[in-house]
């Protein structure tokens, strides 16, 4: 079966113009492939570029070189060279990303934040809100919080809102950056179950899991991300 997401010779460096144009190479020659129903854990020391790789895969960082091939609408598209409109369409339909931090939208209620990507994909509003509510309950977020904007929530509560929003649409490809970082054991177990259900439903998942228990429970294999050798 063909990969849901793969990279060919992906490289990324940052040029800091405000620091005298110093160039920091982070990724070089990354060849990664993830298939439907599979979970790959990025593995490597802190600072090796795992999060940078994730952001490149989502199109949030531009690729310096190489290709990022996403299976979208039945064909492969290269996220490294795609037009902004095409990247936006791929994010709406095919690829989801759960970061460590929730970017709060002023005044928008938690329930609506979770429902939004489902509505964008064409789900009826009532159905999307019902699914959002069910997921928030599953992640042990009490009903009284569903109608409030998450700006004042604790870190763990915000992360669960983020998780609900990321898992709700059922993207074919899902990127998870430390999805359980600030969760207690009960919620960690919920997230493990959600990841395994997404895999069973055919999702291709790439994650950064520092928690060995979580990694052991969901990852099919590890992908080494090594610190760039020719740095400095």
């Amino acid at each position: 079966m063909s990969a849901a997401l793969r990279t060919e010779g992906l490289a990324k460096a940052f040029t800091l113009h405000l620091q005298g144009g110093v160039r920091i190479p982070v990724l070089g020659g990354v060849d990664l492939a993830v298939h439907p129903g599979e979970c790959v854990a990025l593995w490597g020391p802190s600072g090796a570029g795992k999060s940078t790789l994730m952001r490149c895969l989502y199109g949030n960082y531009g690729a310096g070189a190489g290709r990022i091939l996403l299976r979208h609408r039945g064909a492969e598209m290269d996220l490294a060279t795609a037009e902004p409109r095409a990247v936006i369409a791929a994010r709406r339909e095919t690829i989801g990303y759960v970061s460590q931090f929730l970017r709060v939208i002023p005044r928008v209620a938690t329930r609506d934040i979770v429902a939004e990507p489902m509505i964008a994909r064409g789900m009826a509003r009532e159905e999307a809100l019902a699914r959002a509510t069910a997921l928030l309950h599953r992640l042990n977020l009490p009903e009284r919080l569903h109608g409030l904007p998450p700006a004042t929530f604790s870190g763990g509560e915000q992360q669960r809102v983020n998780l609900a929003r990321g898992f709700a649409p059922g993207y074919p490809v899902l990127l998870l950056d430390e999805p359980t970082a600030s969760l207690d054991a009960a919620n960690r177990a919920v997230v493990i179950a959600m990841i395994n259900e997404a895999k069973a439903a055919g999702a291709a998942i790439i994650g950064i899991f520092h928690d060995a228990e979580v990694r052991g429970a969901v990852a099919d294999r590890l992908f080494d991300v090594l610190p760039h050798q020719d740095a400095a």
Binding site: F14, R55, G59, N60, Y61, G62, P84, V87, I88
Partner: peptide, 9 residues
């Protein structure tokens, strides 16, 4: 370009 890419990278 894409808003989040221009602002984050």
């Amino acid at each position: 370009g894409l808003t989040d890419r221009v602002l984050d990278d």
